Simulated assay, not measured.
Amino acid sequence: MLLSHEVRDGALRITLHRDLDIADRAAAVVRIEMLIAAYRPAAVIIALPRTPPSAATLSVIARTKRRCEGLDVPLGLAGSSGPVTSTPATEPNQTGEHRAPGAGDHQPVPLRPPGHTQGPRAGEEESSSRPV
């Protein structure tokens, strides 16, 4: 079972029993939209599992948020510990920019191998010694 629900004091509480994957996403969205249409709640609360949310889970939350906004129904999220975020925590670097921990620890991959010559990039003029 992907999710369960209960209605209490006009609020629809939807509990996700596990983190969703891409195969479950569409079924969860359809089920949640059907519940919202059937109950016409004053508020919707989604209770998330203990694991960090996957991209599919975040997608379901985003779709539910848009549906609730369209109906002027507030949406809340409940989790087991702390706020739910879609991005990793950030820390300021030496220039004051906020970056994810470990970001920038890798070497950039060159777009062209050394010594490789190819036509000009978009927006660049071709340098040529040919007369025009």
Rank of each mutant, 00 (worst) to 15 (best):
G70Y: 03
V84D: 01
D72F: 12
I45C: 02
R99G: 03
L20K: 05
A23I: 04
S129Y: 07
E6R: 12
E125R: 06
Q107M: 08
R63Q: 06
C68S: 02
R40E: 13
T51S: 10
S59P: 07
V132L: 14
Q118D: 15
R40H: 13
S54L: 05
L16P: 06
Q107A: 09
G96S: 05
V7I: 05
R50G: 11
L12W: 02
P92Q: 06
T51E: 11
V7Q: 03
A28K: 01
A27P: 02
S54P: 14
R63P: 00
G123K: 00
T85N: 14
T15N: 03
T90F: 15
G79W: 00
G79S: 01
R99S: 03
G70E: 09
A11W: 07
I45Q: 01
P131N: 11
I22N: 14
V60Q: 01
R40P: 09
A23Q: 09
L48A: 01
I14E: 00
R50T: 08
L16A: 07
V30N: 11
S81C: 09
I22Y: 13
G10I: 00
P74E: 07
L20V: 14
Q94A: 14
A26H: 02
V29Q: 12
H5Y: 11
Q118E: 15
A103E: 12
C68F: 00
E33P: 04
D21G: 11
A55Q: 13
A38E: 15
T87P: 08
T87R: 12
Q94M: 12
T95F: 07
R50M: 05
A37T: 15
P49N: 10
T117S: 09
D19N: 07
Q107C: 08
G76V: 10
T117I: 07
T90K: 11
V30P: 05
V30I: 13
R13P: 02
E97R: 10
Q107E: 14
T85C: 15
P113Y: 04
T87I: 14
A27Q: 05
T51I: 04
A11L: 07
A56K: 00
M34F: 08
D21F: 04
G10K: 01
P83C: 10
P110A: 00
T51G: 08
R8A: 07
I22L: 11
V30Q: 11
T95E: 10
G82A: 02
E91Y: 06
A43G: 07
R99E: 03
R112V: 06
A100H: 09
E97K: 11
V7P: 03
V60G: 00
R13N: 07
D72A: 12
R31K: 10
Y39M: 11
A23G: 07
L111C: 12
A100S: 11
V7D: 05
V73C: 08
Q118A: 15
R63I: 02
H98G: 15
Q118Y: 09
S127Y: 15
I45M: 01
Q107P: 11
V132T: 14
L2F: 12
V30Y: 10
